[in-house]
Design a protein around this nucleic acid. Structure first.
Length: 245
DNA sequence: CCATTAAATTCAA
DNA sequence: TTGAATTTAATGG
């Protein structure tokens, strides 16, 4: 909740050197995004673990693309409760909802690990979008995907039981971040699972304990291992089915 | 929700 | 690399 916003480090970069994926929006459109003939192309923002780089209510000046690391995007509710909207990994966009119409961010974003972000100004993006239909189309697909996911999330929160929501969260993390040596490749606190699933830390801990007893998962601190993916999937597929990345 | 204990992580020597 | 200090997990009221 209470994260310090200390020295943020800006450096210039003219290309996306790390990511070489053909399905990466930044890489696929790097010629446009890193157009060297334009003065202000991109900036790299380096965030340390736990650093907040988008503050709710701050003015929107541009968009962030994750170059490396992971990020949680959240919104704070009325009672100070944190609702995690999504977890984001490299090649994803952050802060896009505020782009265009909104003046201020309605979400906050915090680096879960040391993270590098490409930052593009509104002006540069506007020009790139106007000039390049392919880039615009890629962006549109991203928006459509996000909308779909967000609609599904509304359903899951309002209609699923706590247990189902926790399982759903585990499957989401598994789908999106995969596993490493049998453990989910993203260390999260129980509080963070709770904030995504829309419950409390205690509930998550209790569901985890039950799942461990049923031999569906294993847990060693923040390392959560999925033991029986099929049975977990089956349990929520009775009510829900959705894909996302 | 809060208090207690156990467990895990961090950090600095 | 270790272990003391701090943070986080788990359980029961």
């Amino acid at each position: 909740m209470e994260h310090k916003n200390s020295d943020i480090n800006f450096t210039m970069d003219t290309s996306c050197k790390i990511c070489k994926r053909s399905d990466c929006l930044v890489h696929r459109n790097s010629a446009i995004l890193f157009n060297t003939s334009k003065p202000q192309t991109s900036t790299i923002l380096k965030c340390k673990k736990g650093q907040q780089f988008i503050i709710e209510g701050a003015p929107v000046n541009g968009l962030f693309f994750i170059k490396s690391g992971t990020v949680k995007v959240f919104r704070t509710g009325i009672n100070g409760r944190e609702q995690i909207v999504r977890f984001a990994k490299p090649c994803e966009i952050i802060g896009h909802r505020g782009f265009g119409t909104q003046e201020y961010y309605s979400i906050g974003a915090i680096a879960l690990q040391d993270t590098q972000l490409h930052y593009f100004s509104k002006e540069h993006l506007r020009e790139s979008l106007m000039e390049n239909p392919k880039f615009t189309y890629d962006m549109m697909l991203f928006y459509a995907n996000e909308l779909n996911r967000s609609e599904n999330k509304v359903k899951s929160i309002s209609q699923m039981t706590v247990r189902e929501r926790v399982i759903d969260t585990l499957l989401y993390i598994n789908r999106k971040f995969g596993d490493l040596n049998g453990f989910l490749n993203l260390p999260l606190s129980r509080k963070e699972y709770a904030d995504y699933a829309g419950t409390t830390e205690e509930q998550v801990i209790r569901v985890f304990s039950a799942l461990k007893k049923e031999e569906l998962i294993t847990a060693k601190g923040k390392k959560i291992g999925i033991k029986d993916l099929q049975r977990l999937k089956k349990e929520i597929n009775d009510h829900n089915y959705f894909l996302d990345t």
